[in-house]
Computed example of a mutant assay.
Amino acid sequence: MDAPDALGADMTLITPTELAAMMASPTPPVVLDMRWGGPAAPGSGRAEFEDGHIPRSQWVSTDEELADLSKPGGRHPLPDRDAFQAAMRRHGVRQDRPVVALDGAESLSAGRLWWLLTDAGFPEVLVLDGGFAAWQAAGLPVQEGPAEPVATGDAVVGPPQLPVVDAADIAGVSRNIWDVRTPERFRGETEPIDPVAGHVPGAHNLSARGAHRPDGRFKPADELQRVFADVRPGDVVYCGSGVTASQVLLAMHIAGIDGVRLYPGSWSDWISDPSRPVARG
């Protein structure tokens, strides 16, 4: 199931000041806000957006537009490519404009959109480092209410560009498998979301928490290189449902590490078949 490696690291992250300057240009980017309450509060993201958002930005549903919950394959199966293209066009995404993705602070859902658009071959996908919290902290304008209507875009979702694996591939993986959930979930000591605790046998724990500063911004590239010092192209990364793993792949990209494969279904898909082994400790 592997696809060609992604391009090398580039200037993927932008600051609030840089975004404000881009938005004042004659050809502003399309700004997409993925704030999401997670499994505990899946509908809260839209309410947060309407309480205050970057002017002219659009809210995107992680559950409904960045996943297809009607399919098997874990809690957040990847969306159908045609449906994802239609969603991006609804939000005004165009081939000739950059897309800037953001969420509340830590780029969790923004990382998911970055992965999906990069996989789709979209030419320029940027992430607002520190998300809406950083925008507010910079004292930049905030707009309340629903998103403003936008003209339909012409985004094209092309053939897959990023490497993935499924559960059947895991047995044949000869490279490292990295589980980026918290250490206590990896060890099976607690499982607040999925019905079975533990991890894929042979996996190593590399918590996603290590990629961020306390304010939600990513650590600098040189620090991320140390966080991911043991990661190599061809390795596999997974989490609970594939969302956090996409965020970690973004952090790896910032560090200059590409070609790491995503297990989109992640732990929630692995345990959907009771015959698959589970490790703890």
Rank of each mutant, 00 (worst) to 15 (best):
P146K: 02
S25N: 08
A67M: 00
H53V: 07
T118L: 09
S57C: 09
V99F: 09
T27P: 00
A110Q: 02
R112A: 06
V31W: 12
H76A: 13
D63K: 03
A40K: 15
T15V: 02
S57G: 08
M23L: 13
P39Q: 09
G73C: 13
D33S: 13
G111C: 10
Q58V: 03
G104C: 01
G111R: 11
P146A: 03
P39D: 11
M34L: 03
A41G: 05
D119W: 07
P16R: 03
W115G: 02
D96V: 09
G104N: 04
P141E: 01
P149R: 12
R89V: 14
A40D: 08
G74F: 00
D63R: 02
D129K: 03
M22K: 13
P77N: 12
Q85W: 03
L32F: 01
M22A: 15
E50V: 12
D68S: 11
A21W: 08
D96M: 09
R35Q: 14
L128D: 07
G43K: 13
P72G: 08
W115A: 03
R35N: 06
F132W: 01
L117G: 03
K71L: 15
D119G: 04
S70I: 04
V100I: 10
V127E: 07
D80M: 11
D33M: 14
A134N: 11
A138F: 10
L108A: 02
P141H: 03
T62F: 15
D96F: 10
Q58C: 03
S25F: 11
L113G: 12
D51A: 15
R75H: 10
V30M: 01
E64D: 13
T118F: 07
F122E: 02
E50G: 12
D68E: 15
S61F: 02
R94V: 08
A40E: 07
A101R: 04
Q58F: 05
L19K: 11
A21H: 10
P39I: 14
M34N: 02
R94S: 14
S44G: 10
P77F: 13
D80R: 14
F84D: 05
L140D: 03
S25C: 09
Q58E: 03
D129E: 08
P79W: 08
G37C: 12
R89W: 10
D119V: 07
W36C: 04
G74V: 02
E50N: 11
L19E: 10
D103F: 06
L69H: 11
R112Y: 07
T17L: 11
W36P: 07
D51I: 05
V127N: 07
M23R: 15
L116W: 00
T118A: 14
G145R: 05
A67H: 01
P16I: 00
L116E: 00
Q136G: 09
A24D: 14
W59D: 01
S107Y: 09
R97T: 12
D51R: 15
E64L: 10
V93S: 10
A41K: 15
A105P: 07
L126R: 15
F84V: 05
P42F: 05
L117V: 08
G45D: 04
T17D: 11
W59E: 00
I54L: 13
M23C: 13
A137I: 05
P28L: 00
T118N: 14
L126M: 12
R90S: 12
P123E: 10
K71I: 06
Q85T: 04
A47F: 09
A47E: 15
